[in-house]
Structures are given as C-alpha cells and as structure tokens.
Design a protein around this nucleic acid. Structure first.
Length: 847
RNA sequence: GCCGGGGUGGCGAAACUGGCAGACGCACGGGACUUAAAAUCCCGGGAUCCGCAAGGGUCGUGUGGGUUCGAUUCCCACCCCCGGCACCA
C-alpha cells in the first residue's frame, strides 16, 4: 500500500473532528497541562512562522496527552486591529466582513495542518461576548485607580487629523501622507502598569523556565534606577521648585545649570516671563517638531537655550541658570535634570558647545583610573565614582557614602528624598480608531467621568459603513453613539469615542480559554484555578516585551481583584525563531513567500510539520529549502514502507513479547537496545529540552537500524531485502521488530500524527493514538552490554578496546597497555601516569 | 556604548556532566535494480600528506594565550555576526 499523505490527512482530520478528540473538561482526578501557542492576528493567510509555532505546541500537547495529562490546547483570534480598518478605508470592505472571512480561511489552513486544538473553545476578540469583559475589567481598573485619564503628548499628523502610533511614524512623517509628525497633547486613557513596576521586575527571577534573553529584555524595559529627587527653587519665586531626578546626587556641587525638557510644565510660564516670549516659544516648538525617535535615540545634536531664569542649588545656595534643551526627555523622571558637565558625558558635550562652566567635584580614588589627571582641562566627563572634592561638608566622602549622606541631608532639610525611577511608563491605551473595544466611559457636565453601568455592558461597536480615515475616531462622528444620558443624573452626556489598544485584548485571552462561554463573568475562578497558569507557551520573540509584560500585569490585576491566585500566567516560555527564505523574512514585497497550502498539497501535513521542526532547534531561525522538506517526506515514506512490508506479521505479533524472549541474537539485542534508547532520547528531547530536531534525528536512526536489521535477518543479502526469504524469519526477530515499530509509531505520533494514526490502525489497534500511552523504556535494555573504550597516549587517540560493560578500571588499564595498536606508542618510553575514566576513556601519559 | 545569544564539513546541524568532533538530514559521488530513467535499496565522504593497497602520519570546532592526562565544552584577551536596549539624568 502506498503512502498517500493527502488522503490520510483528510481521513484523520475528519475522524478527530467527529470524535471531538481534543475537546476537554475540568477533571480534578488527572494532572492538567495547559499548552498554548500565541493566538493569531487574522491577516488572511497562515505563513510558515505559524506552521512552525503551532507544530511545536502540538508536539507538546499530543505527547502530554499520551503521558496521561488532561491537556488544554485551545486556539483563537486576535481579531481587532488597524490593518482591517485600513483595508476598509482603502477598499471599502467593512472590518467585520474581512476579519470574519480571514478567520474562516485561516482556520481551514490550521485544520489542514492537523493541530490538535480544542476548537469548541475558539474565540475572537472582536466578539462582543469577549470584548464586553475588556470593558468590565476596564471599569474595575478605573474603580481602583488603575485606569485613569490624563493629557499626554502623542504623535499627531496635521493632515490626516489623527493620532499615530509610534510604529506608524516613518522617518518622522506620517506613514500615509508623509506630513511631518508633531507631538500634541491629548487626553488619553492610561493603565497604571507602573504601580506594578517593582513587582514585575523583581519577579522575573521566578521565571526560571523563560529564556534569559526575554527576561533581560523585560528588565531593561522596566529599567529601575535608584537616585534622588531634589528641588531647585526658582530664584525669583522661591515657592516654585524645579524637581530634578539624579542618580548622582554626589556630584551636585558640580551642577552648573538645570536643564528642562521642552515639554516641561514650567516652560509656558518661563516663556511668558522672558523678554521675548514669541522667540522663546518658537525655539521650544522647534524642538518639539524634531523627530521624536531621533531625539530619543540621541541622533539629533544637543541644542538648548537659556531661559533667563535661575534656580537655587539647595546644597550650595548658589544661583544657576535654567536652560531648555532637546536632550532632556519630558517623559522620564521629572523632565528636568541638574547638569554636571564634569561628571556626565551629555552635560559635558552640552556645556562645551555653549561655553558653560565645568566644575570638578569628584576625584578618582586611589584604586581608580590612575591615568585620569586630577587637574587640568577635561576632554571628556569623568563618570566613575570617586572621592568628593569641593563639596562643602561632604568633601572627602566616597561617592557611594556621599549619595547616602546627601540624600539624607536633602530629606532632613525638606528639599528632596531618595527615590526609585522606572523607565517603564504607564500604558496609554486610547486609540482614535473604530476597530477595537469601545472604552466604556461617559462624560457628563455635571457628574464628570462616569463608567457605563455593568448591566449596560457591552458597549457594542455600532455599525459604521463609511471609513474615510480622516477626522477623529469614526465613532465620534456618530451622533446616536455619542449622545447618551448620564447614568448618574440622566442628563445629557457623551460617550468616550476612543477604542482600546488591541494589546488589551491579548493580555488575558488565555484565561478566557479556560471558560470561553461564560456569560456572567470573564471566567469562573474555580475553572481558571484548575487550568492556569499556562504550562507551556510558544510564540515569537517579537512579543518578548509588549504582550508578555502586559499579560504579567493583567495577571496581577486579576489577582488583586481576587479572581486568580497566581501572579505569573506563563510557567514556561519558548520563543521560536523566524522562518527565512533566501536569508530574509518571507514577505510579499520580497516575493519569497512559501505558501503552506501548496506544501500541504504536495507533501502532506506530516512532512511539513516534521520539516519545520527538524531543520534547526526551535529558538533558532530556519532557512526554508524545498529539498529539506523533501527529505522529511522521504523519511516518512521510508518509515511507511518498512511498516507496510512487515505489517501482516506485526499485526499477529505481541509488541510486549520481546521483553520476555530468551535466546536473542546479538543483532536482535542491538535492535532492542536501540529501541529503548530511542524512547529515552525522544522523551527527554521533547519534555525536558524541547529539542525537536534531535528527537527526530533519533527516530531516523531507529528507522535506519530497522532497515539494517531487515537486511540481516530477512534476506541476509544487502540490496535485495524485500524479496522472498521470509522463511528465514525467526519469531524472535519479529518480536523485536514489533517492539521497535510499536515504540516508533507512538514516538512519531506528536510529529506526524496522520501517518502515525494510520499505521496504528493498520497494526490492529482501535481507539486512536490520542488514547494510546507514551512508551516507556527499560534502562537495563537501553544500556549497552559491551562498550568501545578509546585509548589515548599523550592526548592522541591510538587504539580502541571492546570490553563488556562494567569492566573494572584496573582491567581496562591492563588491556589498554597491552593493546597492539597502543603498544608501539609506548615502546621505549616511561609511563608516567594512566587515567581511566570508567566506561569512557583510558588516557596514558608517557615520556 | 550596555545587555543577551552565536561563530563547528559544500549546506542545516549534533556532541546532554571536560572524555572517540561532525550523529541526523540536505546536496554530491559510486553501486544494485531497470531496456532506460525516475523512485527505491546499499556504500562513500573534514582537510592534507605518505602508500598500488590494506593502512598510517599531521592538522582541524572564529583568533591568540591559559588550565588539564584530555577542551567545541572551563578561564583570560581579541575579532566577527545576529538580536535587544540606548541622550533614561
């Protein structure tokens, strides 16, 4: 019977659907395993990255099922987002229509891959029954001060009249029309993720099964730094302070100016008070028009101007000027810094450019850099710690001690305090867009900001038929949506017309999967308690920061709402590498896209899945090659042929019989050893290492050995195996082959489930492989009974000993020294030392 | 600049705890089968030198050094590549 994968794919996918093979229920009597791959944005077409992602998850899911776990393996759609709305603007197709169509198409593709999803639990974030819980949660967060509204600066395109996300700013201009982007202050909704900054940072330590790379990225992103906030009072109005944040309060005696960001709240007042307010404002505006990304990355030259105002250094009592400069960031710290040109490289460059004074207050300490001249002009800032000089009562202290003493002093005197600053900012979630979750808030002239009452949820997205891409959010143009009575006073009020960032949707979907049809709450806490946290989460490393930090944040919000009892939602994380073609990411514009559907048609799902797992370890990138895929297909066909050839005899055999049979030949014992060793390797590779490539290699070796064994036992004639000679078969040989094939099919089933199922059935098993158990191995059988021990002389390989396992070290040494291949290298020399690594190596040192 | 991960045959890779470097696969070469080809099955292969051959010598995991009986693996210095962060005060 020939291997016809396309037929097997259809047959078994049909069976699985029919028998609801992968649907699952809470079952406290069994250990659970929650296996999750990041859900998909329904772009319309699955790509090879998806294939790889879902294949990895499926190996774990199917394997764990066979190991007796109650496996939750769901899938869904991250269905809101800009692309659908942009398509609507361009082609006039409603986002709802295109999204539903895309989901249907992609779902078909995934089903043709044979991934073992519990499709009953499928969800799409654009379903009102899902996003109503976004709104519910938003209101809970609002009640707790975790959702709040404030003005903030955003990217603004003056031509399109809309806010742009950072990613939509290309080379400083609007991605759509090219108009230079400006920053503009707008009222926006924020989630107070910074309330959890410390915890999110600290508890990265608990994530022992996450890649270091991701943890490092998260730690950098959160960016904790310890320092002090110091108030510099305005010289002409001592009631008004400019707060600065510094990690180097020990250098404060060297501060020769204070620099504030163009966005600083005091800028407006200082402009008014300046001799030429118009010129002042023009300068500030010029800074704000500079490309934000470039400004933040330091690609723009440091520029600034003197505001004319002065502040008083609270440590020295000295009056120093206040400047505005483009290199100070409004969003970090207090938006103001004390500039210490001698001890900060940026300040140094700035001071040098504008001829401002540079005052040294830190001297290198004894064991510091000796080459740093203690006096004379600086060519760069001295940024290391050292010993304080010219610093009043603090002179002579070491930097670290000085920081503590000076922070204490500031606190006692009431003009400062020790503080911890995070780089992480609160999460701005307002989007002036249609295709997202409406923010469930109402503005009333009398009652202010009022949440939509729970019993009026969801605030459904109204039907919009015309997308222009201009003006405010499309929702703002719908009178019948905007005009609403105030829930508190019943008077006229208006709805919030912004929608939520789609990262809100993806921050908790893994909870909803546990209880996806719950109409009364986001999920039943008892059900989530059983399934969560996710045991194994697979996705692209591009989500290392955004999605994975937001989800950790949401888990803590749910925890503090009393809905979950854990803090970390994902126990183990696997970040899979990209799929490249010709050294580049597959993309339509490059014309190097390989279509999964075509590959499925040609080679079947099993070969495609096997290939993307075999070609490299999971975290690495893979380079697509058609010949590689053919190789995986060949392996499957080769396996198929072997089983096909032996099938009748194997059906009659008992796979467990091999264990009890006496009188095996050396070849038969070797095959059993290989079988058991393969089980050991494949099990560990999947479960402990997630090295799918080496697991597959191990199975290939077993198949190669089976062919070699067939040669030896069936025909004794290499090259002519499949013909005649069946009379030679020993029952013992059939038993060990039956054992090997039985193990192989089970091991292969998470990788190539369709073929494995077919073989399983042909071997006479009923009930399907998902009901079968994972094979176990016998350590004693897997262990070799004879070993080849290499012998080195002076570090060079000179001979090999074949000895029974467990040969004592003294005997190994004796055999090594007597070995004819070793002898010539010992002749006429003195043996200084013999090292015997038991069971591994004999090493002789001669002189 | 800082942080993280890498650098192994023609190519993708493997080597799990310091112990025979290159498993497995791709591409390639040879053979069997075939009228022939494809498919399949078998065999071969790091480089280099000696040898008709069997076989043997030397070198070989980015570079240079070190530790060790023994290093792809550990240590020091350096080069290169990939990813992330980056005027964060």
């Amino acid at each position: 019977m020939d291997y016809t994968p396309q037929e097997l794919d259809r047959k078994w996918q049909g069976r699985w659907a029919e028998s609801r093979a992968f649907e699952t229920e809470v079952d406290p009597s069994r250990p659970k395993f929650y296996c999750l791959e990041m859900f998909a944005y329904p772009s319309g077409h699955a790509h090879m990255g998806h294939v790889r992602n879902y294949s990895m998850g499926d190996v774990l899911a199917r394997m764990k099922r066979m190991r007796g776990f109650n496996v939750l393996h769901p899938f869904g759609w991250d269905a809101f987002g800009l692309p659908a709305e942009n398509a609507a603007i361009k082609h006039g197709v409603h986002p709802e229509t295109s999204t539903r169509g895309n989901i249907a198409h992609m779902k078909g593709q995934l089903q043709r891959l044979g991934i073992s999803y519990a499709w009953d639990r499928e969800l799409a974030t654009c379903d009102a029954e899902y996003y109503t819980w976004n709104q519910w949660l938003f209101i809970r967060m609002f009640e707790r001060g975790l959702a709040y509204r404030r003005r903030s600066s955003v990217n603004w395109c003056g031509s399109c009249n809309t806010v742009l996300a950072n990613e939509q700013v290309v080379d400083g201009g609007c991605w759509r029309c090219g108009t230079p982007v400006e920053t503009r202050d707008l009222e926006q909704w924020f989630f107070r993720i910074t309330a959890y900054a410390d915890e999110l940072l600290e508890e990265t330590r608990a994530l022992t099964k996450w890649p270091d790379k991701v943890l490092t990225m998260q730690r950098n992103w959160i960016g904790r730094s310890e320092g002090a906030r110091i108030a510099f009072a305005l010289a002409h109005d001592r009631a008004v302070p400019i707060d600065v944040f510094t990690t180097r309060v020990d250098t404060i005696y060297g501060a020769t100016l204070v620099v504030i960001a163009p966005e600083h709240p005091l800028v407006a007042r200082l402009a008014d008070e300046s001799p030429d307010p118009a010129a002042f404002r023009a300068e500030v505006q010029a800074f704000r028009l500079q490309d934000k990304a470039a400004r933040m990355s330091g690609e723009v030259e440091k520029q600034g101007f003197d505001t004319g105002a002065c502040v008083v250094n609270p440590f020295t009592g000295e009056s120093i000027p206040v400047w505005v400069a483009n290199f100070v960031l409004g969003e970090y710290g207090t938006g103001a810094v004390m500039a210490v040109p001698a001890h900060d490289q940026r300040d140094f460059e700035f001071a040098t450019r504008y001829g401002l004074p540079i005052r040294r207050v830190i001297q290198p300490d004894a064991d510091g850099d000796a080459h740093v001249e203690a006096t004379g002009p600086l060519t760069e800032a001295f940024v290391d710690d050292g010993v304080l000089a010219a610093s009043g009562p603090f002179t002579g202290l070491a930097s670290e001690a000085a920081r503590a003493a000076m922070t204490q002093h500031a606190a006692t005197q009431g003009f400062g305090e020790g503080t911890i600053q995070f780089r992480l900012k609160d999460w701005g979630i307002s989007r002036q867009r249609y295709w997202g979750t409406p923010i469930p808030m109402i503005y009333c002239e009398r009652d202010g900001i009022v949440p939509v009452p729970d019993d009026q949820l969801p605030v459904e997205l109204p039907a919009v038929t015309h997308f222009t891409g201009r003006g405010d959010s499309p929702l703002a143009q719908l009178r019948e949506f905007v005009d609403v009575p105030c829930p508190t006073c019943g008077g006229p009020a208006r709805r919030e017309t912004d929608t939520m960032d789609t990262f809100v949707d993806s921050s908790w979907y893994f909870y909803r999967f546990a209880d996806p049809r719950n109409a009364r709450q986001p999920f039943d806490p008892a059900v989530v308690k059983y399934w969560l946290p996710v045991d194994f989460y697979v996705g692209g490393v591009e989500h290392a920061i955004l999605h994975l930090i937001y989800s950790r944040f949401f888990a803590r919000v749910f925890r503090d709402l009393g809905l979950v009892d854990h803090s970390e939602p994902f126990t183990q994380l696997l970040t899979q590498g990209m799929v490249l073609k010709d050294g580049a990411v597959m993309s339509k514009s490059k014309g190097n896209v390989v279509d999964p559907d075509q590959m499925l048609q040609k080679y079947g799902a099993d070969a495609l899945r096997l290939y993307v797992l075999f070609v490299a370890p999971p975290e690495g990138e893979i380079e697509w090659t058609d010949t590689g895929l053919e190789g995986s297909f060949r392996f499957l066909a080769r396996t198929w042929r072997f089983v096909d050839h032996w099938c009748d005899r194997l059906v009659a055999a008992d796979a467990g019989a091999a264990a009890g049979i006496e009188g095996l030949t050396e070849g038969e014992r070797a095959l059993r050893r290989k079988t058991h060793d393969t089980i050991r390797r494949v099990t560990a590779d999947i479960e402990q290492r997630q090295q799918f490539n080496t697991a597959i290699a191990a199975m290939m070796e077993l198949v190669n050995d089976l062919y070699a064994f067939g040669d030896a036992t069936v025909t004794g004639a290499p090259g002519r195996r499949h013909e005649g000679a069946l009379a030679d078969e020993r029952p013992q040989a059939i038993a060990v082959v039956a054992e090997a094939v039985d193990a192989l099919v089970r091991l292969l089933s998470p990788f190539a489930p369709h073929m494995a199922e077919e073989i399983w059935e042909r071997l006479g098993h009923a009930g399907g492989l998902s009901a079968a158990t994972w094979p176990s191995f016998d350590e004693a059988v897997a262990r070799a009974d004879s070993l080849v021990i290499p012998v080195q002389v002076n570090g060079k390989l000179r001979g090999r000993l074949t000895v029974p396992a467990g040969t004592p070290e003294a005997e190994l040494e004796r055999l090594a020294l007597a070995d004819p291949a070793v002898q010539p290298h010992l002749a006429g020399r003195t043996i200084r030392k013999v090292v015997v690594a038991s069971g591994r190596m004999v090493s002789v040192v001669v002189q």
